[in-house]
Design a protein around this nucleic acid. Sequence first.
DNA 1: TCGCTTGTTGAACATTCGTATAACAAGTGG
DNA 2: CCACTTGTTATACGAATGTTCAACAAGCGA
Lengths: 198, 198
Amino acid sequence: MKAQPAFRRAEPDTRRLSLIAACARVLAREGASGASVRAIALEGGVSPGLVGHYFGGIDALVSATYAHVEVQVSDALDVAVAAAGADPRARLEAFVTASFAPPVASGELLATWIAFWSLVRSREDIAAQHARQYAASRARLEVLLAECGLPEPRLRRAAIAITALVDGLWLELCLSPEAFSPAEAGAIARAALDALLG
Amino acid sequence: MKAQPAFRRAEPDTRRLSLIAACARVLAREGASGASVRAIALEGGVSPGLVGHYFGGIDALVSATYAHVEVQVSDALDVAVAAAGADPRARLEAFVTASFAPPVASGELLATWIAFWSLVRSREDIAAQHARQYAASRARLEVLLAECGLPEPRLRRAAIAITALVDGLWLELCLSPEAFSPAEAGAIARAALDALLG
DNA sequence: TCGCTTGTTGAACATTCGTATAACAAGTGG
DNA sequence: CCACTTGTTATACGAATGTTCAACAAGCGA
């Protein structure tokens, strides 16, 4: 009788993704302080050494997890925008509305953001990653705003404003869901769009 | 020759405050992950045991530090509002403008906020503290808005909106100061007030 | 079937963590 | 000047941290 394999090899990218997913789950369940190499390896059904093998350190894994989750969030927003049809204003409103509904606004995602933010000030490469992702997210919003007819000179500030408003509402929604509802957050953001677009 | 005292006794409240100040300094310098009992005790010129003696645990010290810093921030905003004179609109604008200048907006404060936020989801008492402080901060803004003539039914949402906008701008300002300037953040917030108050 | 590459393991490493606690001493009231 | 209270120290403890590395074996090509 042949013993079944003690472990299974995986494509590097597959394994990397499964570790990222495990990291995200641990962050969601245990919070930023519970995301240790061992806990993540256990969650991924893998030995602790693999984390170092693929990412070299826990910071890089957290950074990769943030990048991955950000892409998921970004995709979810894109889907919502696409589902809104062709009307520019409807697309913009779909964007902000989706920002306050799962899977974008979710307390479980908060720990990933917090773990990432806590690295921004001390690690220059992670600060650069944050700046890059922030710029990308703002640029996408600028496109939606431009399609609504907002003139180019006002685009930058408008995008900064809407991004900040949405982020602030999102953060508070994750931190204390009782303060106000996702629907109320959506209404507030849409009112801001009204004011901005006239 | 009499050896000088090996240590100095302090009033409980004095010592508590000095530990809170030491915690804030360590958070500012080392970030959330560097704020260990030992590092804080060393910073405060005190033995590690005292942290447990006064606060019972590191979480309670972080929570107390957050509360203390929040009061400082709140006081700084009050000073700015008072300095603006009697005109309600000027007072409101002073409030948002001060939110983007030191000592309120400062990368060094960010770590304190992050350390506190990371406790909100896992500890019920800290979630309650956050909800309480958020409500207080929103209530103060509601007063300023009411003085500008905003009718009562619109107060709640307006305060939520301005708080979220200011928090979002503040956060991004602390995370990546190159994205936009404090002056630009202030202009954005004042424009939002324009839109809100007509 | 054999050998080779390399993904993977699991233990060991030196630190560091938070907390508990016994001994010490500063300051106060007598 | 002497207790007595208690703020404070210093150490010790077990657990957990991130990282390293030699050994192992899975899967592929020959």
